[in-house]
Design a binder for these strands. Structure first.
Lengths: 222, 222
DNA sequence: ACCTGAACACCGTTCAAGT
DNA sequence: ACCTGAACACCGTTCAAGT
């Protein structure tokens, strides 16, 4: 497929654009996962030398930032309906998009994403909060709070989904059997089954509801 | 310091233990950050060959898991006082520990941590929730919800703290100026200052309060 | 401006061998 | 069981050079 013999000499151009680079990276991300998204691998798929990418992207970090915003591409922001429903819809769609790109989720929390899609959806949420009487700095804190919940819950879910049986995996590395000892860990041992599960949709909706309830109440009290 | 000439022949032992490996990794983590925590670097600090570590640790993944649990080492779980204060104390201390080991935080969300410290603190939170009338599966979901918030907010904070001016950094890679256009992004442009800030302590305490309020209310209604 | 060749300074992990 | 030597198959990035 890719990495067929390159027949270009130093002076010739390959006709690569930044969109091409991002598209190739996305393809690799979906087909082989984040670990396979290396500069060299992306370059090979485009049939260019590894360092050719640096003409279109500052470094790998910048490429990842582009991938993150591209993940939010299809999400639309409703402009009508009750404000809480609007917020919930946007964040639920965001969660769905993140679950489809699991590898990328942990990176979303640890870097501020200010791509066009992130800005568009953030603006829509601030607009909806405004309708609900949440404005100014309070609205920004509310947005950040809900982003932490949405991205955090998604990362939590992906980690458990992609790592089916961490108990038996980690057992040959730590003394985990203590969790099952009712003497030292009565509550944990009784709920070990529930702990190993993570009903993502349920927890996401529950947390978002609790946050919105509280935020709406705080706004009303002022 | 390390990587002085190794004078051991194949048959001889270096006397390394797993605790030594973890300690060396922690030292590197603190002094040079997560990126510097490589198997080869850790081995060099212990004056052993890179592959010698595999006698004490399954792979790098297992080493990271040990580092994560070690991060929670000093946190104590209160056994008296109001149940909400107990939960808040444990999670606030967890947040503090995470902020001190910023690099590690994103990894905490994407992998289930079942080391002894994580289990100990989880048990303490479940015990406190029990006092508050939150039991069984509801308690587990409450715990997961609060962990998502605590770890998520920490990751959010670290990402912004360690990346001081992401706007000017990413500007040479995406069209971010749209955020400042009042026509398309009225709410965002008006709050761009507040958005670039993230008052970690405030947001953490706010979110935890809202979650606990809601959880307590839900428990009372049943 | 865009691309290649070559290189630098790294990675994690495995395999065979030594005591 | 614990460790070394050597190797495999990779990384991201830079520098000089070509058109």
């Amino acid at each position: 497929m890719y990495s067929t013999a390159v027949v270009r000499t130093p002076g010739q151009r390959a006709g690569i654009t930044r969109d091409n680079v991002v598209a190739a990276a996305r393809a690799i991300l979906h087909e082989e996962g984040l670990a396979a998204v290396s500069m060299r691998h992306v370059a090979a798929r485009l049939d260019v030398a590894p360092n050719a990418l640096y003409s279109h992207v500052a470094d790998k970090n910048a490429l990842i930032a582009l991938l993150i915003d591209a993940m939010l591409d299809g999400i639309e922001a409703p402009t009508s309906g009750p404000w809480r429903d609007r917020v919930t819809k946007i964040l639920a769609d965001t969660r769905t998009a993140m679950l489809a790109h699991g590898d990328l989720v942990p990176l979303c929390l640890s870097r501020q994403t200010i791509g066009p899609n992130a800005l568009r959806l953030g603006e829509a949420i601030l607009a909806a909060l405004h309708v609900g009487g949440i404005e100014g700095e309070a609205a920004v804190r509310a947005l950040q709070l809900m982003l932490v919940h949405t991205i955090g819950a998604s990362a939590f879910e992906v980690g458990r989904r992609d790592d089916p049986d961490p108990v038996s995996r980690q057992r040959r590395g730590q003394e985990t059997a203590a969790a099952l000892d009712p003497a030292t860990h009565p509550h944990t041992s009784g709920q070990s089954e529930a702990i190993s599960r993570f009903p993502g949709e349920t927890v996401f909706q529950l947390g978002l509801r609790l946050l919105l309830d509280g935020l709406a109440r705080d706004a009303g009290n002022q």
